[in-house]
Amino acid sequence: MTLDPRQQEIYDAWCREQAALGAVPPRAAFDPVAFPRALSTLVLVERIEDDALCFRLVGTDMVEAWGGDFTGQRLDEIMEGEYHGFIRGLFDECIARRGPIFSQSRFQWDKGRALDTRRLMLPFRRDAESEDIAFILVSQVFDHGKQGPPQPIVQAGKTFEIIELKREHLPESPRS
């Protein structure tokens, strides 16, 4: 696993909060503004009625990489097909585990163009009294290296391939 330093900072903070509480932290325990270096990589997703996922915060790196701001939209409104299934599966796994997960994958658009991405997903309860996971915080970083297109627009693409390079359940305690 190779977390980006911005992701590591958020992961360490989540682990400290989880260790102090002995439970998944409530959403109020995390203020995105407290992580200015990571803020542009963040996406905050809320579980709403019918178990739908709604994007509440979308960082500027995500807006740039995806070609638009999807704040206020539901996952099923911006993604479909295999890609929707893949991303929804990551969210569902994080919710079911009640713990952090890391996923590294490669997207391939057209022929021969690829873009690597790393996702850190952290669960949060709605509040201190609730046990349900109501929010998932995602920090997603992209490798805009030589292989990737300068401005991928994933939600508009109908044909692509996802190659998951790594998926890992992360420990729920701070690093030693």
Rank of each mutant, 00 (worst) to 15 (best):
Ala128Phe: 11
Phe102Trp: 11
Ile133Trp: 05
Leu115Asn: 08
Ala128Arg: 13
Phe107Pro: 00
Phe107Gly: 01
Ala114Lys: 12
Arg126Gly: 10
Asp132Leu: 03
Phe124Arg: 03
Phe124Ser: 02
Ile136Lys: 04
Thr117Phe: 15
Asp127Ala: 02
Glu131His: 08
Ala114Val: 06
Arg113Cys: 04
Leu122Arg: 10
Asp127Tyr: 02
Ala128Val: 14
Arg119Val: 14
Arg106Trp: 00
Ala134Ser: 04
Asp110Gln: 07
Arg113His: 13
Ile133Asn: 05
Ala128His: 13
Asp132His: 00
Ser130Trp: 10
Thr117Asn: 14
Ala128Asn: 10
Gln108Arg: 12
Arg126Gln: 06
Pro123Val: 07
Arg125Glu: 07
Phe102His: 12
Leu122Gly: 05
Phe107Ile: 08
Arg119Lys: 14
Asp127Lys: 00
Asp110Gly: 11
Gln108Phe: 02
Met121Glu: 10
Arg125Tyr: 04
Thr117His: 15
Glu129His: 14
Asp116Asn: 12
Phe102Pro: 06
Ser105Trp: 13
Gln104Ala: 13
Ala128Lys: 08
Ala134Asp: 03
Ser105Cys: 09
Gln108Ser: 07
Ala128Cys: 05
Ile133Val: 10
Ser130Met: 12
Asp110Phe: 11
Ile133Cys: 09
Glu129Pro: 03
Ala128Pro: 10
Arg119Met: 15
Ala134Thr: 01
Ile136Phe: 05
Gln104Asp: 13
Asp110Asn: 13
Trp109Cys: 00
Asp110Tyr: 07
Ser103Ile: 00
Leu120Pro: 08
Asp116Thr: 13
Lys111His: 07
Ala114Arg: 05
Ser103Met: 00
Lys111Leu: 10
Pro123Ser: 04
Leu122Thr: 12
Ala114Asn: 07
Ser105Lys: 11
Gly112Ile: 11
Asp116Trp: 14
Arg106Ala: 01
Asp116Ile: 07
Ile133Arg: 10
Phe102Met: 14
Asp116Gly: 10
Lys111Cys: 03
Ser130Arg: 14
Leu137Gln: 02
Ser103Glu: 05
Trp109Arg: 01
Asp127Arg: 00
Thr117Met: 15
Ser130Asn: 15
Met121Asn: 12
Asp132Lys: 00
Pro123Tyr: 08
Phe135Cys: 03
Phe124Thr: 13
